[in-house]
């Protein structure tokens, strides 16, 4: 427990900054909604006037643009992007920090096994992810409720917003794996920014291309928001893939770190 407490204490400041930034991004876009919601309703009418084949081809057949959720879906994408960076950052940093800050000779000579240290650190990441999600979820719920003129589908809202949790868990576990896989990490952010943006761009690319194989590469596509709104659920194959990958990353983190030589200073 002492390790968990220590990690949470050390991560407190950056957690607050991240929570505020995520909600900041959310608010920034959502506050534009009232000014463009009229436009959006006009578009809806235009769409409905299109032939049905066309609507289907573009996946807009059952689109409800007049609903605030369609705009929220768009906004959330940027929250997911930022949240992914936060999570990956935590994942990469939390174990490697002991080596980077040269405190490994302090922590790892204490009477705790490496597996226990890793478990506690993973737990600390999870707790921080949960806090972030609780914060974003509440803030989003308030904003969406305040801005919506009609009733909206709360279940869909929850599905959308919870994808942040899953995406963050994915990137955190990827980060953990990367941090034990690489021999030595000196600065965290270039790695996490780079990886997240590459995945994000593959996702953007796939928004246009709609390629199934490409969709399996980017975790942003596992929780593709437009797909979720169509199915009203997460895609089971993607969810399974998510689960397997996260499990594998965590397993390898334990496995590799137990065998790792900690460099002397």
């Amino acid at each position: 427990m002492n390790i968990l407490k220590q990690e949470l204490r050390m991560g407190r400041k950056s957690l607050i900054i991240w929570c505020l930034s995520l909600v900041g991004v959310l608010c920034f876009f959502m506050l534009l909604y009232p000014s463009i919601s009229n436009q959006l309703e006009d578009f809806q009418k235009v769409f409905k006037s299109f032939p049905i084949e066309f609507q289907q081809a573009f996946g807009i057949a059952d689109l409800e643009l007049s609903s605030i959720l369609s705009f929220y879906q768009f906004t959330l994408m940027y929250v997911l992007l930022a949240g992914a960076i936060q999570a990956m950052n935590m994942g990469v940093a939390i174990i490697s920090s002991e080596v980077r800050e040269k405190t490994a000779d302090f922590l790892f000579v204490k009477p705790v096994s490496r597996n226990r240290v890793v478990s506690m650190k993973i737990l600390a990441v999870l707790v921080q992810i949960l806090i972030t999600n609780a914060f974003v979820f509440t803030a989003a719920l308030i904003i969406v409720t305040l801005l919506s003129t009609d009733a909206y589908d709360v279940e869909l809202f929850a599905l959308f917003t919870l994808s942040l949790l899953f995406i963050q868990i994915f990137f955190a576990s990827l980060g953990l794996f990367v941090s034990v896989f690489l021999r030595r990490i000196r600065t965290v952010l270039p790695i996490s920014m780079g990886v997240v943006f590459i995945f994000y761009i593959i996702h953007l690319l796939n928004e246009t291309l709609k390629d199934e194989k490409l969709g399996l590469i980017s975790p942003f596509d596992y929780f593709n928001l437009s797909e979720i709104s169509k199915k009203m659920n997460y895609d089971s194959l993607n969810f399974l893939l998510w689960f397997v990958l996260v499990g594998m990353f965590i397993f390898l983190t334990f496995k590799l770190f137990a065998r790792k030589d900690l460099p002397s200073i």
Partner: peptide
């Protein structure tokens, strides 16, 4: 041409 610009952005096109 039929798509309004804002929609294109929302759909990432």
């Amino acid at each position: 041409a039929a798509f309004p610009k804002e929609i294109m952005i929302i759909f990432g096109m």
